[in-house]
Every structure is written in structure tokens, then in C-alpha cells.
């Protein structure tokens, strides 16, 4: 039982990091679809750094920096050049996948340094992810910067009129989202798979985006979504190992199908008005250009 729980937490952690980061970005009114690109960037950079120094901790720090650096591409494009956020996010994914495929070749077949197990058999990153859930919740709802961030996300014109620096708030949020996605990606390469392979995040970034919708932009909901996803993944792997008479390829569809199902359920709840939860931030995905 305990090992299943540990596996579940491990499978949930990359998604938890990436989705928490994206949640903050979206609460600031920015839709960054490039999570997958930043995750894969973090996965490679973190793996390379961990391999070079022998320290997973350094790996995760470098992954955060790499994710944030990639997110700054998106920030400059959408905040200064006012490009379409959907298209720019997509470009970030394609660019990240290409860049890592190009520079990742020397790391193929190399092993990652071992992660130390922490209390209860859970490593430090799992604990950090768990701690970040209340931290993000507290930061968003109980602090002044959090209030400003939400104001910027709900109505950027009003926030601007009140004198809040819309662009600066958004850029900081995007950087945070990038760092979180980078660490989430590094968890896949350093802690889960233990090596680097091309495109190894396999859609985790997109699942994280769906989890944010599922969570109705609430950090606790992200935790629930990440665990749900972790549960489906572990269940699927267990069924594979148990030799169920279903082809492996079909079993491994489960996380993606579950994501669609969850997305449909939550969207339906919002659409048919039986929802008590939050809705999308008012300015989500819209470019901000101050005329005055």
C-alpha cells in the first residue's frame, strides 16, 4: 500500500509543479500553452547539470533557471510584442522540443545520479511540491502581491488604472511558471525515468494545463488533479505489470483519456451552472496594451 502511495506521489509530482506554476500564470491573466516546451527544457538542463555535478539538487535549480529562461521568450513575445498567446505558447513547445532534441544527443544512455529518499520514503522534491500547494494558495489569497496579481488577471484595464504595473506582474508570473515547469520536467528525467530521452515529458505539460482547468484555478484543486493523474498512471502501470489481457499500448492511453474525461466533466459542470468553484480569470489570454 505504502509503495503504491509513493509511486502515486512520484507520478503526480511533475504535473503538480507544472500545474501550480501555470495556475499562477493564468491567475495573472496569461495563458501560456508552452508548458510542455518549458518542461522538456527543464528535463534536459536539469539532467545535464545533475549529471555534471553529481547533485540532483543542483539539477533542479538549473532546471528552474532553464524553464524560467524559456518562459522569458514567451514573456517578451506576448507582453512587449503583443503576440497571440495561443500561437506563441505553441511555438514555445515546438522550439523547446526541437532545441532539446538537438542538444540532448550526448546525454542519451547516460544515467542520472541517485536521489536521496527523504522522510517516509518520499524524496525532497515531492515534499517541496506538497509544501508549495499551501504556499501558492496563501500567496495568492492572503498577501498583497497575490491580490495585485489576481487584480491584473481579472481585469487588466482596471488594474492599470489603479496604477499597478500590469506588464511587470505578468512577466514575474510567467517566470515563476517557467521555473516550476522546468523543475517538473527535471523530476521526470532525474527522479522518474533516471535518464534522458527525446520528448520524454510525453504530454505532461498539456496534462498540467488541463489540470489547471480541472482545478478551477484553485491550488488545492491542482493537488487533487495531480493525484488523480498519478493514480491513473500507477494503476495503468500496475495493470501492465500484472499482465492484464489488454495490449500495453491501449493501457498507456489511460492518462490521456482520463484527462479528456476530467476536462469534459468540469467543463460541463461550469457550463450547466452547478458549479460553486472559481471560473477562468477575466482577462485570461488577452493582450494588454496601455494606450495611456
Amino acid at each position: 500500500m505504502m509503495t503504491v502511495l509513493i509511486l502515486l506521489m512520484g507520478a503526480a509530482t511533475p504535473i503538480l509543479f507544472a500545474a501550480l506554476g501555470e495556475l499562477v500564470v493564468e491567475r495573472a491573466g496569461v495563458l501560456n500553452l508552452g508548458v510542455e516546451g518549458m518542461m522538456i527544457g527543464g528535463a534536459l538542463a536539469g539532467f545535464a547539470a545533475a549529471h555534471a555535478t553529481g547533485s540532483p539538487a543542483v539539477g533542479f535549480a538549473v532546471a528552474a533557471l532553464a524553464g524560467a529562461a524559456l518562459s522569458m521568450l514567451f514573456a517578451v513575445m506576448t507582453q512587449y510584442l503583443l503576440s497571440n498567446q495561443v500561437a506563441t505558447g505553441l511555438a514555445l513547445v515546438l522550439f523547446g522540443l526541437g532545441l532539446t532534441a538537438m542538444f540532448g544527443k550526448p546525454y542519451e544512455g547516460v544515467k542520472a545520479p541517485a536521489m536521496m529518499a527523504g522522510p517516509l520514503g518520499l524524496n525532497g522534491m515531492i515534499w517541496l511540491g506538497l509544501a508549495l500547494v499551501p504556499a501558492v494558495w496563501w500567496g495568492l489569497t492572503r498577501t498583497r502581491p497575490g491580490l495585485i496579481l489576481r487584480a491584473v488577471g481579472e481585469n487588466h484595464d482596471a488594474a492599470h488604472a489603479l496604477g499597478y504595473p500590469v506588464r511587470r506582474v505578468r512577466i514575474l508570473a510567467i517566470a515563476f511558471g517557467g521555473a516550476m515547469a522546468g523543475m517538473g520536467g527535471a523530476y521526470v528525467s532525474i527522479a522518474t525515468v533516471l535518464q534522458w530521452t527525446e520528448g520524454m515529458t510525453a504530454g505532461a505539460g498539456w496534462i498540467a494545463l488541463a489540470i489547471v482547468v480541472f482545478a478551477q484555478w484553485n491550488p488545492w484543486g491542482v493537488l487533487a488533479g495531480a493525484w488523480l493523474f498519478g493514480g491513473v498512471t500507477v494503476l495503468q502501470l500496475r495493470l501492465q505489470a500484472a499482465g492484464v489481457a489488454v495490449p500495453v499500448q491501449l493501457l498507456s492511453m489511460a492518462p490521456y483519456l482520463a484527462t479528456i474525461l476530467v476536462l469534459v466533466l468540469i467543463s460541463a459542470r461550469q457550463k450547466f451552472g452547478r458549479s460553486g468553484g472559481g471560473s477562468a480569470p477575466g482577462s485570461l489570454g488577452r493582450s494588454f496594451h496601455a494606450l495611456r
Partner: peptide, 16 residues
Amino acid sequence: WFGASEILVSLMLVYV
């Protein structure tokens, strides 16, 4: 029918 994001659903279906 449900208002689910076509971006995310169509992308998930690539993996499927």
C-alpha cells in the same frame, strides 16, 4: 456539448 477546450482535447487525442 460541454464547453471543453478544443485545444487540450485535440492535443490529448494526438497521444491517444
